[in-house]
Design a protein around this nucleic acid. Structure first.
Lengths: 314, 314
DNA sequence: CTGTTAGCGCTTTCAG
DNA sequence: CTGAAAGCGCTAACAG
């Protein structure tokens, strides 16, 4: 396709404004060394001509790229991405998106490393990087900032604290398969008694949650509160308990350590990562690095309790 | 931050390979006019030197940008985005992401139009563009491809067809607020009788769905099936009916015209857009346009019924 | 098939 | 404060 169009270039603007291209460049970028009057006038003219700096040429000449690569394994974590994108756009950076969800595209990406000399920094959002992958990124010689999912332990601590504050002592903990650590100490630390039958594992699905609820209902005593590490499991527990005639939160309170569309929709109290904000914070850190020390860093999603309708007094 | 590094440029490679820069350029891009032997050797050397073409310079000189702007209003539609990104990356295009979720960033974007001379095409994913916005994009003079949500009418047709196949005749239709058209004709066309009290409106929330279910339960006759235009509403209906002791699908079948995490998790039969595939198809169309006629086009998410556990014989 | 020569549209010294 | 000149690293004619 041939496009023979609107090549309003900087020199066009310069000519129209009766100054040199250098002055236009300085004026438009807010560089010092231009009188305010000139700057205003040039900006004016540029806008009238709908002129926009050609990034390619600008990068080539200036050495800066004004672009950040955003790597993510899971577009589902939408707000994190949205927050980061907004902050970057506002700061004048392009966002080059790379969705590294499946193994194929992921290995492909790290083999090709298509970022060479193309970005000023890298943001890795909720994707756990292998050693080799981190190393590959390091060769780009630009700052890398990672945002990981918040850690379960502290989320659990917050949830349990909330429940204890409501007077609960009998708290069951449902962990999604794959979670292999023990979290008893968190309960112990709060002075709670550990009952083995109240620590349950479940596949990370709604059906799994329903089975867990069944197991709970079959026990000789029901806890007054349930904490689930996974949102879908929480929903399963919620639905089964309700169907069994248990009122939530009157009979049983429920907290999810994982906040999702699901839990939000149903009104389940949950620990949410402040995703949007964290995305913005990560961008701030990255831009700081770019301007400053060039260092890399790792951020955890900050945990925050959102009390909804599934928790109440014991 | 000062970066005084690895500026392996094309001429470095050329020197190392004992050829001219032009030859390296041709060889690396697969352009004709290079002997196979030379191409192989040059490629070899380049790889060994870890050389990667500088996109900026390449674009500047060549006039092509190898970048596509992807506009989306809703990162939640993850698979569409993932599909498009994968296809674009494979084709060698950068993806410049713009999340135009909230009004502020959206108007900001269309006022600034930061894309001038920066992309070879635009992909608008599940975002309905206003007249003025389309016009703004048109000024970029690059192909624009849009992928819209599938249309409700055809989704409804599929859902109703499915239910009728299962023997249902008493079908209630729940529309989320904002849907203003009448869909009676779809039912009529299938030979169904229209009962006004079985066409209900609801806020697009779980609570709204629960209220709808209440209204249904209060009626003098219960439909044998419910179709909801919205996933969250469907979930609300689902939960309330179950709590009221109605078995799904034994007593009542339920179909959502909108497939989401929610409906998937709970196992509600739904009409899903084949998002990933559609993303790839849109990219194919866009790349075709870029190479060819430069035309723009609109794609609908292709509707597909996913039968889960919420529908069964009447 | 390959090399040479001009730029692409900016930013950046360096003078003025 | 402003302008002129010299590239940034490539690609695209044009010659050989």
């Amino acid at each position: 396709m041939i496009r023979e169009v609107d090549v309003t270039s900087m020199s066009d603007v310069a000519r129209a404004a009766g100054v040199s291209a250098a002055t236009v460049s300085r004026a438009l970028r807010g560089e010092p060394g231009v009188s305010e009057a000139t700057r205003r006038y040039v900006t004016e003219v540029a806008k009238r001509m709908k002129y926009a700096i050609a990034r390619d040429a600008s990068s080539l000449a200036g050495g800066r790229r004004f672009a950040i690569a955003v790597l993510t394994g899971d577009v589902g974590r939408g707000d994190l991405l949205a927050g980061a994108e907004g902050a970057l756009r506002q700061a004048g950076f392009d966002v080059l998106l790379y969705v590294l969800g499946d193994a194929g595209s992921r290995t492909g990406f790290f083999e090709e490393m298509p970022l060479g000399r193309r970005v000023d920094g890298v943001l890795a959002l909720s994707i756990v990087l292998a050693e080799a992958e981190s190393a590959a990124l390091a060769t780009l010689d630009v700052p890398v900032v990672r945002v990981d999912d918040g850690d379960l332990r502290s989320a659990l601590r917050i949830a349990v604290g909330h429940l204890i504050g409501l007077g609960h002592r009998d708290i069951a903990l449902v962990l999604a398969d794959g979670v292999d650590e023990s979290y008893d100490e968190v309960l112990v630390a709060e002075g709670l008694e550990i009952r083995p039958e109240w620590t349950l594992w479940s596949s990370p699905t709604v059906v799994g949650g329903e089975q867990v609820a069944d197991a709970l209902l079959d026990g000789d005593r029901l806890p007054t509160a349930v904490v689930s590490s996974n949102g879908e499991v929480a929903l399963g527990v919620f639905m089964r308990l309700r169907r069994d005639g248990r009122a939530i939160p009157a009979d049983i309170s429920l907290v999810s350590l994982d906040d999702r569309d699901l839990t939000r929709a149903v009104g389940i109290t949950a620990i949410e990562g402040a995703q949007r904000e964290e995305g913005e914070r990560a961008v701030a850190a990255l831009l700081g690095s770019i301007r400053g020390d060039g260092g890399s860093s790792v951020h955890g999603l900050s945990a925050r309790l959102v009390v909804r309708d599934s928790t109440g007094p014991a």
